[in-house]
Structure formats: structure tokens, C-alpha cells
């Protein structure tokens, strides 16, 4: 059983949710870093930040059901010199308390680390009040905010550890339940702002984040086996600052890009990728997979990922469609990069 260097093993990654791994890693970090404090708003158990509280009760603050106060108090603790980790559901973070996150934390460049759980439609059965398909869009628009979407439990552990030493506010978005493991082990280099190539390919590139990464990896295997397609898969775990070089290389090498995310197609990963593509001035086919401009239906997350075509089936369908679309010839393609 491989040790990850943190508090859990690969075995745990298969048996713990992203949130449980977060709770375990934060507790471990708390032992090394006396400046870490943890805050929640009556979601100690759901977000697993309560694990830290069990070990370090004096550094743990539950403010009750009051998210505006939660982020304001976090800002005050950061002003007093602490490194606050603040956790509640994504929807309450990015919408209910958006102004406190923007004005109290980002505007003052405070060292607050926000780990938001139950993002996207990962709490599918709860309905729109508890879904959050807008948070990437909201959070990446706040000046100075770093936005990370780990692909699985191993990456959650790495992201939580990495954000400790990253100056300024960080928003890490995780789901609710068990996400399939993307990585065989933790022996890979995780750097904020640097995407990870999960598979190389020359026909098209799938750029994904969160649970969509594993779906993209599966889709690439099927597309290879069934259609002989060579599909590059990029795990764009950091939405901001985004890895422009990797996107520009994908434009150059494949000219066909699909993005996949458990988020609205407005303002999230797909939009971030589109912005980079547009700046290259190159013609490139792009399909954005995600939740369309509507509130999602109720259902189990896997069913919803299938319904909104952000699972392997959906990515395969989009890949076949995009491969059937002609691109204009561009004789100067090589010269312009």
C-alpha cells in the first residue's frame, strides 16, 4: 500500500470521499502548521472539516448557519495572522456569501483557503437549492482568487497541501460523494496552474476538470479501441490561473477540443478554455460539455452526468460529432504559432 506522504493511502482514496480525504489531510497539516484555523457554518460533518475540530478544538470555529458571518470571521482571523480553512457547500460559498468572499477576502488579499463541497450536481438528489453549477464562474471573476477543481481524492489531498503554501485566497471545489480514482498512485507532480496530460493524442483533445477527468480518460480508451481515434486528455485541475500553454498546444496539435465539467457551460472551464483559444486567433473547433443554461433536474450524480452528457458516453458522442465536422484548410497553420 503506497504512502502518499500525507495521512492516507491509495487504499483510502478508494474508500474515502474527497471530503473525507480533505478532512484527514487538513488534520495532518494542522499538526505541522499552528497558524491553520478551521471554520464552518453547521456543516462540520458534511464537509468533514470537523475532523480538524476533533483534534484541534481550540482552533476550530463553527459559526452556525450564517455563511456571511463565516467568511467575514475567516477574513478577521486572516488579518490576525492565521491561515483559515473555511468550508461549507459550494452554493452557499459562491452565492450566499459571494460578497464576503470577494470584498472581505479577495480585496484584502487575505490568505484564506476555501474548500467548498457538494459542488456541481454532486448532491443531485437535493435539487437546485443545493446544486452549484455557477461557482467556477463566480469565483474566477474575483481578482486574485485561485480556483482549483481536483479530479479525485488523491488530487484533493495534493491540492489541499499545495494551497497552504500558495500566497493569497484559494477556492478548491470538490464534490459530495465517491469520485472514481484517476490516478494509480500519488507519484505525480501536482503544481497549481499546471495541467496534467492524462493521455496523449493527435486527433482531438478533451480538457476536463473534477469528476469529468476520469470520464474523459475512459472515453479516450473507448474512442481508441472503437474508432481508432487518438485522443489527448488534459486534467485542467486549476481553472485560474489557467494553463494557457497546454491549451495552445492542444489547438496547434489537434484543432479539435472538447471541454467537460460538472458546471454550467457559461463561465466555467469551457469558457476559460474558449477565452484562450480566441486569443490565439486560430480556427479551432470547440464543444463545451456541461450543464446547459437551465437548472439541473433532480437525480443521482451518475445519472445526471449521463443525462447532461458529461460522462464517458457523452464525451464519446461529442468526439464523434466533432470529428465529423470539417475544418477549413489553413496553409499557414505551422507558421502562425
Amino acid at each position: 500500500m503506497a504512502e502518499t506522504g500525507l495521512t492516507y493511502t491509495v487504499y483510502d482514496a478508494d474508500h474515502m470521499t474527497q471530503a473525507e480525504i480533505y478532512g484527514a489531510v487538513l488534520t495532518r497539516l494542522g499538526g505541522e502548521r499552528p497558524d491553520i484555523v478551521a471554520l464552518t457554518a453547521d456543516l462540520a460533518k458534511s464537509t468533514k472539516i470537523g475532523k480538524f475540530g476533533e483534534k484541534y478544538p481550540e482552533r476550530f470555529f463553527n459559526v452556525g448557519i450564517a455563511e456571511q458571518n463565516l467568511f467575514g470571521v475567516g477574513a478577521g482571523l486572516a488579518l490576525a495572522g492565521f491561515t483559515p480553512f473555511i468550508s461549507t457547500f459550494a452554493v452557499f460559498t459562491s452565492l450566499r456569501a459571494a460578497e464576503q468572499v470577494r470584498t472581505d477576502i479577495c480585496y484584502q488579499k487575505l490568505n484564506c483557503k476555501i474548500i467548498a463541497t457538494h459542488s456541481g450536481v454532486s448532491f443531485g438528489q437535493a435539487g437546485t437549492t443545493h446544486h452549484c453549477t455557477e461557482d467556477i464562474s463566480v469565483m474566477r471573476s474575483f481578482a486574485g482568487m485561485t480556483v482549483i477543481v481536483p479530479a479525485d481524492g488523491i488530487e484533493t489531498a495534493k491540492a489541499v497541501a499545495a494551497c497552504c503554501d500558495w500566497e493569497g485566497p484559494v477556492y478548491i471545489r470538490i464534490g459530495r460523494g465517491f469520485e472514481p480514482r484517476c490516478y494509480e498512485n500519488d507519484q505525480y507532480d501536482f503544481q497549481i496552474g499546471k495541467s496534467i496530460q492524462m493521455a496523449d493524442g493527435s486527433d482531438l483533445t478533451v480538457i476536463a476538470c473534477g469528476p469529468s477527468v476520469q470520464h474523459a480518460v475512459e472515453a479516450a480508451k473507448v474512442l481508441k479501441a472503437e474508432a481508432g481515434l487518438s485522443v489527448r486528455v488534459l486534467n485542467m485541475h486549476t481553472i485560474k490561473p489557467i494553463d494557457k500553454d497546454a491549451i495552445i498546444s492542444a489547438v496547434h496539435d489537434t484543432r479539435r477540443i472538447i471541454t467537460a465539467e460538472d458546471h454550467s457551460t457559461i463561465g466555467g472551464l469551457g469558457t476559460s478554455v474558449a477565452e484562450v483559444i480566441a486569443e490565439t486567433g486560430k480556427s479551432c473547433l470547440l464543444r463545451k460539455l456541461g450543464i446547459p443554461d437551465q437548472f439541473a433536474i433532480v437525480g443521482y450524480p451518475d445519472d445526471l452526468y449521463n443525462h447532461y452528457k458529461i460522462d464517458a458516453d457523452g464525451i464519446i458522442e461529442a468526439a464523434n460529432a466533432i470529428m465529423g465536422t470539417e475544418l477549413e484548410a489553413d496553409e499557414d497553420w505551422e507558421d502562425e504559432f
Binding site: 470555529f61 456571511q68 467575514g72 470571521v73 477574513a75 478577521g76 482571523l77 490576525a80 492565521f82
Partner: peptide, 11 residues
């Protein structure tokens, strides 16, 4: 006031 609560907790 929330920021002040955080500062006072910090102290």
C-alpha cells in the same frame, strides 16, 4: 462586525 469577531477570536 464579522471581521471584528475574527480579529477578536484571533487575539
Amino acid at each position: 462586525l464579522s471581521i471584528s469577531v475574527g480579529l477578536a477570536l484571533g487575539a
